[in-house]
Design a protein around this nucleic acid. Structure first.
Length: 172
DNA sequence: CAGGATCTACTTG
DNA sequence: CAAGTAGATCCTG
């Protein structure tokens, strides 16, 4: 079930103490956030609407805070149209997990009233287009193991550590 | 149709 | 305990 207008996105680099993240905006909000990558792509367009500039500032502010103490606030609107209905439900549920708290894949499945779709929930987490701000890193496996992370487990560990959750057991 | 960021129950060192 | 196995489950491309 895709509902995609497929509009072009405006990319903006965001410098943090952990590297340069890249945020991409559509006409209705932040659509994607990627972790620092080796390659330093991006043809930066300096002429963007004040609307996007504003969202960009909010994103930067929120990201900086998230990476500093885990307390992020003042988010720009999110454009999650890329996701299927199922994925959007999961991503919405993710946003209810507060910083410093933690959840399990099965708990999340139960939260969206599909207690048996545990595995599918894991996949949906992996498809989260806005990591960090949509806290998929706060989801651990039921056995107190860390589970996986598409951006690389190091990031998940780092984020959890920043939020004071370091009691989990590493999986591998 | 195969393949995941899972889970539970069970069996073995 | 830790580690490995089997089967159940269900969204995706």
């Amino acid at each position: 079930m895709q509902i995609l207008p497929e509009s072009p996105l405006v990319a903006a680099p965001i410098e943090t103490r952990f590297g340069v993240f890249i945020a991409r905006f559509s006409e209705i909000g932040l659509a994607q956030l990627s972790f620092p990558h080796e390659s330093q792509p991006i043809a930066t367009c300096s002429i963007v609407s004040p609307q996007i500039r504003s969202w960009c500032n909010q994103t930067e502010e929120a990201l900086q805070n998230a990476l500093q103490n885990g307390s992020a606030q003042g988010f720009p609107p999110f454009d999650l149209r890329r996701g299927t209905e199922f994925q959007q439900r999961v991503w919405r549920a993710l946003q209810t997990i507060k910083a410093g708290e933690t959840m399990t894949y099965s708990g999340l499945a139960a939260a969206i009233y599909q207690p048996t779709a545990v595995r599918a929930v894991g996949s949906a987490c992996g498809a989260n287009p806005i990591p960090v701000l949509i806290p998929c890193h706060r989801v651990l496996a039921a056995n107190r193991k860390i589970g996986g992370f598409s951006g690389g487990l190091q990031w998940k560990e780092l984020l959890l550590e920043i939020e004071g959750q370091d009691g989990f057991v590493r999986l591998i």
